[in-house]
Design a protein around this nucleic acid. Structure first.
Length: 472
DNA sequence: CTATGGCACGGATT
DNA sequence: AATCCGTGCCATAG
């Protein structure tokens, strides 16, 4: 479970704590769920009502709310986003559980055998006959994720061959189709994937390999800043690297085995849950966006109405405790409502502004600042900051990105640069790039263009041949 | 001499 | 108050 988010334990739910963080805004879903779970366990006044579903589209609903999608004004295309809180507990796109649920055991083992032979067939031509046994041995020791369950030394000893030879065979296997199969660890799998992408001159953010080697644990904990210091890159660059890894690499090679061929597979979603999901209602160009603010619980969280009645005739020694429970429960529910309310307002505004970006991609990102949004919504800057921090959004194209990306001032220009470079006939130097950009209406300095170029991993013009492949 | 990358400053953001 | 980011200046490599 290397890639599961490992958040630090939350402080216990105390009145003082709640008072300080009146809104639970800065909590991501993951954290909020923990908070709620502990509250439910410790506070008898809280209860979770049964979940309801929309009879027509089966969406989960809160309490007695009408289904926001089905009851939206008859699907009038007015480009108004449809925004609602969507309760769910089943959003665990984390691979293991899902596959185990969806694939019955027999089919499962069959797939594993298939995987081994599938790989063996690929490498057979390059495999020296005397190495076949080694390859077979290795392949039979794959776990369901495509990782090795034995060490290379064991294999070497067993076959009485030098370790280096086993390594050679292993590398051959790693390079076969689910790229990275037969690695000893997720990080090794990632590394080989990076290596191969680079060999095929795909774009890989600089220092990605370093990041993987140095900080798998930090990567999982999302300790970007710390990791940044270690490999001498800014937090932002690190998060870009993480973003890249999430989209293009797979620490558990076999899990991609059922997807398309490498490269077209569904983006991996193993390390981040989205707090917000955006989808399209239909495929017309002016379709409303369906924005779901995901709540980490099913049904509605509320104060048990019976509990309040019971307080008055509580046994004497308990009454104080019950009062306090009741108070805390009410407070928590209010805070959550407050949080939801703010998120809805925020997303409504954001989605309207960034509609083109959501539909059309990075090039259409409107540069806005958090403080501007704060003014628009009459909220405090720090409120917006908190609401944005640590939240992940799933776009209609299934990519999961941090919400903070929507405030990236330079993303537009950077995509423009990638565009220009990928279409250039002769390498453009930084000055020329700057000129073109200024003509296009971007106000940007030469030095800055150089920085962006570097950030995107594009080498300086003189090191570029006329045709350089840049990532999509 | 030109293109690039390092350093440092100031303004913006968090 | 601390940090990040864009930019100008300058040294250096080619």
């Amino acid at each position: 479970m290397l890639f599961q988010t490992q958040k630090t334990a939350l402080k216990p739910l105390t009145t003082a704590h709640l008072a300080q963080t009146m809104t639970l805004l800065e909590y991501s879903n993951d954290e909020l769920r923990q908070e709620i779970e502990s509250a439910l366990a410790n506070n008898p006044a809280l209860e979770l009502s049964d979940e309801k579903r929309c009879p027509t589209c089966n969406r989960r609903l809160i309490g007695n709310q009408r289904c926001p999608v089905c009851s939206s004004p008859n699907h009038v295309h007015d480009e108004e986003p449809i925004i609602f809180i969507s309760p769910r507990t089943d959003f665990t796109p984390k691979g293991k559980e899902i596959y185990q649920d969806e694939i019955d055991p027999e089919e499962w083992t069959a797939s594993i055998e298939d995987l081994a032979t599938f790989v063996l067939r690929q490498i057979a031509p390059e495999l020296a006959p005397e190495d076949r046994k080694i390859a077979a041995h290795l392949l039979s020791a794959l776990d369901e994720d495509g990782l090795l369950t034995i060490t290379l030394v064991e294999v070497a000893k067993y076959h009485h061959v030098p370790l280096s030879r086993v390594k050679q065979v292993q590398e051959l296997i790693q390079r076969a189709d689910p790229i990275g199969v037969g690695s000893l660890s997720p990080s090794e799998a990632l590394l080989i994937q990076v290596k191969i992408l680079e060999e095929n001159s795909h774009y890989v953010p600089p220092k990605t390999a370093d990041a993987i080697m140095e900080g798998m644990d930090l990567l999982c904990k999302r300790g970007f800043t710390e990791l940044g210091k270690k490999i001498n890159k800014s937090t932002k660059e690190v998060s870009r690297i993480v973003d890249f890894i999430g989209k293009n690499l797979n620490p558990y090679p076999a899990r991609a085995y059922w997807g398309d061929s490498y490269g077209n597979q569904e983006p991996n979603q193993y390390y981040e849950e989205s707090d917000i999901i955006i989808s399209l209602l239909d495929d017309s160009p002016d379709t409303p966006l369906v924005v779901e603010i995901v709540a980490p619980y099913a049904g509605a969280l509320r104060v048990n109405p019976l509990f309040q009645k019971a307080i008055s005739d509580a046994p004497g020694e308990k009454s104080e405790q019950w009062e306090s429970d009741f108070y805390q429960a009410t407070l928590l529910v209010k805070c959550i409502q407050q949080r939801n309310n703010t998120m809805v307002r925020l997303m409504n505004h954001l989605v309207t502004i960034q509609r083109k970006y959501i539909l059309g991609g990075n090039a259409y990102l409107v540069p806005i600042t958090r403080s501007q949004i704060a003014k628009d919504l009459n909220l405090h800057e720090s409120t917006i900051s908190r609401a944005v921090a640590g939240k992940a959004v799933q776009l209609p194209n299934k990519r999961i990105i941090p919400l903070s990306n929507w405030f990236d001032r330079s993303l537009q220009i950077r995509t423009e640069i990638i565009q220009l470079v990928s279409e250039e006939k002769e390498p453009l130097n930084d000055t020329q790039l700057t000129e073109i950009l200024i003509e296009k209406g971007y106000q940007v300095a030469r030095r800055t263009v150089a920085k962006y170029r570097d950030l995107e991993g594009i080498p300086p013009s003189r090191l570029r041949n006329s045709r350089q492949i840049v990532s999509a």
